[in-house]
């Protein structure tokens, strides 16, 4: 019995050695609740722009990848403590986050956030604005000094506007497009806010080689135009 364990450990070890940086399987952490970036499809699997992008990046970098979901709240602590190796979850590159983890180059350009409201002529500075707790949008409204109301989930922010609890919701444009489809009463305001940088993949600071591998893969996808095609297909952002 002891021998058996030793052999499997040895096999695991050599398999690990085969990869330059010790990652025989790269675990991709995502949220799975942020359509069209990443979501759980009808079959119960991770799907969306980032699923397709991630699979392509792994193929180009010749890595075996596996998808896992994690709550947004603890997505960074779980990366740094090693429960998965990358975050690919529509995460904007911000200075605060960059201090704790490393990012690859952005795979989508910075995009504005939009407002969804019942009344198209709303003055957002005087209104009550809903946002999800802990997002860059919530921080933005707090910073601006407007009236902010925070909800735990994105659904609740939209529901609050429908119910008249808040006058508008500030969130990522592609998410609000989805919400607008299912509720005809909502309109998108013309005003947009430039917050957050582009979206990139997050990695541990100590994982330089893996980051270089993904960076190279993103560059090659940018160069041959496949990245732009993918962005257009999923309508997540503007193209490069």
């Amino acid at each position: 019995m002891k021998n058996l364990i030793l052999t499997t450990a040895a096999v695991a070890l050599t398999a690990g050695m085969a990869m330059a940086d010790g990652h025989s399987v790269v675990r991709m952490g995502t949220e799975g609740a942020y359509a069209p970036w990443n979501f759980i499809n009808d079959a119960g699997e991770v799907d969306g722009f980032e699923r397709e992008l991630g699979d392509e990046l792994c193929a180009r970098a010749e890595l075996t990848c596996e998808w896992v979901t994690n709550e947004w709240d603890s997505i960074i602590p779980n990366l740094t403590s090693g429960n998965y190796d990358t975050i690919i979850a529509g995460m904007s590159i911000t200075d605060e986050r960059d201090e704790v983890i490393d990012f690859t180059q952005a795979y989508t350009p910075p995009d504005p956030s939009s407002y969804l409201a019942m009344d198209g002529s709303l003055d957002v500075e005087g209104g009550v604005i809903a946002a999800q707790t802990g997002t860059i949008q919530a921080a933005f409204i707090a910073e601006a000094g407007w009236t902010l109301v925070e909800f735990a989930t994105p659904e609740e922010t939209v529901a609050a506007v429908v119910a008249g609890e808040a006058d508008a919701v500030l969130a990522d444009k592609s998410f609000l497009m989805t919400a607008m489809e299912t509720n005809g009463d909502l309109v998108m305001l013309e005003r947009e806010e430039m917050i957050g940088g582009g979206v990139g993949m997050g990695l541990r600071e100590s994982d330089g080689e893996l980051r270089a591998a993904f960076d190279a893969a993103i560059t090659s996808m940018k160069e041959d135009g496949t990245l732009n095609a993918m962005i257009e297909k999923w309508e997540v952002a503007s193209t490069w």
Binding site: G32, A33, A35, P36, F39, I40, N41, D42, D47, G48, T69, T153, P154, E155, V158, A159, M177, T178, A179, E181, T182, N183
Partner: peptide, 25 residues
């Protein structure tokens, strides 16, 4: 991934593009 996770996930707003069964909240 417990029952609350899936209840939230299934109950959330679903647009026509990503599911065969779009619905509101």
């Amino acid at each position: 991934e417990d029952i609350v996770y899936w209840a939230r996930e299934l109950g959330g707003i679903k647009g026509e593009r990503f599911t065969d069964y779009p619905h509101g909240d």
